[in-house]
Computed example of a mutant assay.
Amino acid sequence: MFHRYASLMKGLALPIILLGIAEVWAIAVHTDSYTLAPPSRILVAGLRAFSDGSMMTATWQTLGSVLTGFALGGLIGVSLGLIFGLQRPMDQLAELPVEVFRAMPSIALLPVWMVIYGLGYKMEVAVITFSTIWPNMVMTRAAVRGVTPRLLEVSRVLGLSFGQQIWKVVLPAVFPGVFVALRLTLGFSLVIGITVEIVANPQGLGSAIMLAREAMDPGLMLAILVWTGVIGVSFNIAMNLLKKHVFQRLLSQGTPA
């Protein structure tokens, strides 16, 4: 236990030192900035935003869009990756359309999504979903192609159905690659969601950042940015816990199709 706390304190040492330097510098300079604020002012602004409920309201709006888009993009992308990885003819047929859509910048397509869905929740979810399908699909397809063909041959000899082959042979083999894809795209979903809210969607943390900037409140603006970073770290911790306690247990148990 002591070693755990000692390791934690070592990890916190550099951030604490940097915060102290920033605070001392801000006090020594005695200047008002419309873009920067000392850590104490950021903390006060963040606490004020939490106390009046505005921070949590914006957080739930962002999380609703981000998690929905991530789930849809992950489901579609992983499914397509499994199909294209196992069915080479379909993969060859879809290769050109996939490469074309994958190369399209998701933010550049904002006008298209705005025409289809208007402003709001649906538009943001559509952008996040479109953005996360392709990395999930590409990494899953690559993981499936890395499965030893002999494993599939043995599963057929044992009389496993196609669904059982997927669940008991393919998924355990490709799980590390798929998990990396999901973990990366979850953080990517947050980035895309915040960007969409800054550019075009008047809700969530991204919109709150722009409102704080327009109000010339750098303390609040930076407090929201710090809180966004905390959310990103929390996503990473949550995904690791899911991997350890849920995904691997499900895959180790397996179920007949």
Rank of each mutant, 00 (worst) to 15 (best):
M1H: 09
M1R: 06
L8D: 05
M9Y: 11
M9D: 02
M9N: 06
M9H: 08
K10A: 14
K10V: 15
I17T: 13
L19A: 08
E23W: 09
V24N: 00
A26R: 13
I27T: 12
V29I: 14
V29N: 13
H30M: 12
D32G: 11
S33F: 06
S33Q: 04
Y34L: 15
L36M: 13
L36P: 05
P39K: 02
P39F: 05
S40Q: 01
V44I: 15
R48N: 14
A49F: 07
S51H: 11
S54M: 07
M55E: 02
M55R: 07
Q61P: 04
S65T: 15
V66P: 00
A71G: 05
A71H: 00
G73A: 03
L75D: 04
G77E: 09
L80C: 07
L80E: 03
G85Y: 01
Q87G: 00
A94Q: 07
V98N: 06
V98D: 02
M104D: 00
S106G: 08
S106K: 11
A108I: 01
P111N: 08
W113D: 01
I116R: 07
Y117V: 03
L119I: 14
Y121E: 01
K122A: 15
V125M: 04
I128K: 01
S131D: 11
T132D: 12
P135A: 10
N136M: 11
M137W: 08
M139C: 04
M139F: 14
T140L: 12
T140S: 13
T140C: 14
R141N: 12
R145I: 04
R150H: 06
L151W: 11
L152N: 08
R156Y: 05
L158S: 07
G159N: 02
L160N: 07
S161F: 04
F162E: 15
Q164P: 00
Q164V: 00
I166Q: 00
P172K: 06
V174W: 01
P176Y: 04
V180K: 13
A181E: 09
L182R: 07
R183F: 14
R183Q: 15
R183P: 02
L190D: 01
L190R: 02
L190G: 01
G193L: 07
I194D: 07
T195L: 00
T195Y: 02
E197C: 06
E197R: 12
L205H: 03
L205Y: 05
G206Q: 08
A208V: 03
I209D: 00
M210N: 14
L211K: 10
R213D: 12
E214P: 00
E214L: 10
D217H: 08
P218V: 10
G219S: 00
M221V: 03
L222M: 13
V226F: 12
T228V: 15
V230K: 06
V233G: 09
V233C: 10
S234Q: 01
I237L: 13
A238N: 04
L241G: 09
L242N: 03
L242M: 09
K243H: 15
K244Y: 10
Q248N: 13
L251V: 01
Q253P: 04
T255D: 00
A257M: 00
